[in-house]
């Protein structure tokens, strides 16, 4: 993506902090981007990234890269990682919000709720998550 911001590294907790920092830079460099659009986009990015940190195999050895582009009508982020593929049949598109008193299971449904598009594909040996939020 042209004119974007990107990072790469290991899918570990410190990498999550780097993602927060990168998205903070996005806000600084695009003051016209509504704060809520950016914070909701950040919410999705962090949920997907958390998922990679928690479930990526082998643990601590998965490498990822992330790129974000602010377009006039949308924000687009692409997270790729070299961990194992998601298990066949794992629901990505139809994740439902769990009961209010559940303590987990909200990550993917929350990412869906704040995005207009969330797509997962396996490209060779790479997982590719594409996240799109239309600007309000």
């Amino acid at each position: 993506m042209a004119g974007d911001l990107r990072l790469s590294g290991f899918a570990v907790p410190e990498g999550i902090e780097a993602l927060h920092d990168l998205l903070e830079r996005v806000g600084s460099e695009h003051p016209d981007l509504a704060a809520l659009d950016l914070s909701m986009f950040e919410t999705a990015v962090i949920e997907i990234a958390n998922n990679v940190v928690e479930h990526g195999l082998p643990p601590g050895e998965v490498r990822w890269s992330f790129a974000v582009e602010v377009r006039p009508d949308r924000v687009v982020g692409v997270l790729t990682d070299d961990g194992q593929a998601l298990p066949e049949g794992r629901p990505v598109a139809d994740a439902e919000m769990p009961d209010v008193l559940a303590e987990d299971g909200r990550g993917l449904p929350l990412a869906h709720a704040v995005l207009d598009e969330l797509d997962y594909t396996r490209d060779g040996r790479t997982n590719v998550w594409t996240m799109v939020r239309r600007r309000s």
Partner: peptide, 9 residues
């Protein structure tokens, strides 16, 4: 400033 699903949990 920010909460994720683990924080909600």
């Amino acid at each position: 400033s920010f909460v994720d699903s683990s924080g909600l949990g």
